[in-house]
Amino acid sequence: MQRGKKLKQLLYALLYLSPSLLIFIVFIFYPMLKTVYLSFYLTNPHGDPVVWKGILNYGTLLSSEVFRKSLFSSLLFVLYTVPGTILIALALALLANARLRGIAVFRTLYSATIGVSVASAATIWMFLFAPGNNGMFNYLLTLLGGPKVGWLVTTQTALPALSLMSIWMGLGFNFIVLLGGLQSLPEDIFESARIDGAGWWKQLQHITFPLLSPTLFFVLVVDTINTFQSFGQFNILTQGGPDNATNVIVYSIYREAFFNSRFGPASAQAVILFVIILALTLIQFGVVERKVHYQ
């Protein structure tokens, strides 16, 4: 009788979950399983699996210099982009947290990039980065007497240049989240700290940061995942070049699957990317979260 009741409860639970389950199955679980399945094959250009490769696709990938470079570029890109975005957004949020007349104008301006799509942002930055004397950045550098930089055309500058653009893109979202976090901090703690004689820096160090750490942790995880999955700016600005310097994994997956029509190796790359992001997120939860102070 007891067991019957439990089973019935489970069935009801499944029933109520079924709409979301259905959507998850159709749009997430099925494509994921299909990706894993395809990663063991060589497909023809329509995407039908025709030659069984087993784990050979993975072997070829891991021994390929281009793929290792791709992995490395992705990691570098995350390293260049995520800390910069969070630090600048945090500085802006601290500034905009001040209670001043007209502060809303600044808050709106600082969060404005959230309203810009990657495609239009990349197109704007394409003009800024244009080589020779035609780009805005090079024009400004010449005015300052500096050298002209081949922003997107040399291997040394292409990835940092894309990172610069991505930091700018990410500021809006990070700023809003961090400002929200700052505003929800209880004022009385700061008040008692001030009574105890704590200065601005002391308050920041010992109260703001610990209390804000859940929010910081949230943006760290979300930014890392988002940055790993950046695509639009690579597609529009560099297409993986020059000499594969910006051929990050997501772009390389797209290129393999939809240009080269090699869905098998592309799926294998996607599986590897999935594993990496999963591992990174687990590490973040296991290591970084211990330092997070939840109230």
Partner: peptide
């Protein structure tokens, strides 16, 4: 070297660079 985008090279030609 003005990169892969033909438009960048065309612009440089138009601007007499």
């Amino acid at each position: 070297n003005l990169g892969r985008k033909t438009a960048d090279t065309q612009n440089a030609f138009g601007a007499q660079q």
